[in-house]
Design a protein around this nucleic acid. Sequence first.
DNA 1: TAACAACTGTGAAATAATTAACAATTTTCT
DNA 2: AGAAAATTGTTAATTATTTCACAGTTGTTA
Lengths: 207, 207
Amino acid sequence: MKHLPHKTIERLSQYRRALLICAAKGKTHIFSHEIAKIQHITPVQVRRDIMLIGYTGTLRKGYNIQELIDLIGDIIDTKEGLNVAVVGIGNLGRAMINYFNGKRTKLSIVAGFDSNPDKIDRIYSGVKGYHIDRLGEIIKKENISIAIITVPAGAAPDIAEKLVSAGIKGILNYTPKPVQVPSNIYLEEYDMITSLEKVAFFVKTHI
Amino acid sequence: MKHLPHKTIERLSQYRRALLICAAKGKTHIFSHEIAKIQHITPVQVRRDIMLIGYTGTLRKGYNIQELIDLIGDIIDTKEGLNVAVVGIGNLGRAMINYFNGKRTKLSIVAGFDSNPDKIDRIYSGVKGYHIDRLGEIIKKENISIAIITVPAGAAPDIAEKLVSAGIKGILNYTPKPVQVPSNIYLEEYDMITSLEKVAFFVKTHI
DNA sequence: TAACAACTGTGAAATAATTAACAATTTTCT
DNA sequence: AGAAAATTGTTAATTATTTCACAGTTGTTA
């Protein structure tokens, strides 16, 4: 397996989530069309993705759920796990923390940062809040490699720069303001307003 | 202009956001390479998107910012605007409300819903909270056509079904659990865990 | 004013992602 | 056992998206 398409990576993560739910219900095998139905895609696409990661199912029995979960883990997780920081302990930052905590063992949110003194030294679902000035220090001490930016838009570029200086490896920017980082840092930007405008556009045109 | 690619729609929304910021600074014209830099894409792609919507810039002066903003508005907005509801007034729901309010005139969040009585009849950044049981009633009364689902994952399928019954036209699901809706309803799903896992994957492989 | 540089607009080529089509295999039914 | 149905794995075709390459235009400089 050489280069998995970006889209496949995203879907593998989603498959795993669905598979974990199935496994928890005691299901042991699943067909490509069942996964497809859940994810709103075609069974062929599921089979192709699974083919790309080199797994094969059993004819007429489908895929072994646990094996598939484990294999997806081998591909998208790191063995030792990665530590994550949330920068901006507002509603969105706290949503991320709550959402995440305890669900994944291989990715852990280990620190929150904010500039508001009221938010410092408190614990949010097990995650401690630090002052933004301690960003560099804590990132090194806690061996944090990924940061999620959930500050108000205006502050994003400055935060991104600080994160880069602190040696972060990947950034997920939830601010509507795109940030600039060196090309060796993986950057993913997501903007809720764009998604909502896209829905609005298709509601408008489809009707 | 017949069919704009989905990707182009997303970028147009982003261009507009960037252009509004430029306009606010008093800038009147912008080059394709300036927009490209902001959005981390190539100038050709910007020019092609703009070509697809039938606008043309001025050689050596670039694009007229205000004209482009207006044209993008003609394409992605509806004249009368659309009303939006947020279902689930947790951290994420409140983040959406705060984030949005007052920023766009053509898309307005006009109601929040929750099952927790403590959240009902309060105002969140100008948006009133209603009990979830009143979903159908309020959606009709307020002429809401789009809903954002920000409830805990387990509740998502049930909420989606209620929204469909209430006659919603588009759904943006921020729950990690995919929901099933009839094909005449536009559904967009976004899952923060997947995004974070994707960043983790590329951090892992790129280093 | 001639040469140069900086842009836009776009057909054609390249790349990425999805879907179709079907052989191969296994189970079930008669 | 033979036929029918269900399901995977995969090549080939198709569709979607991005990039290349360059003609055309306009301002600037010498």
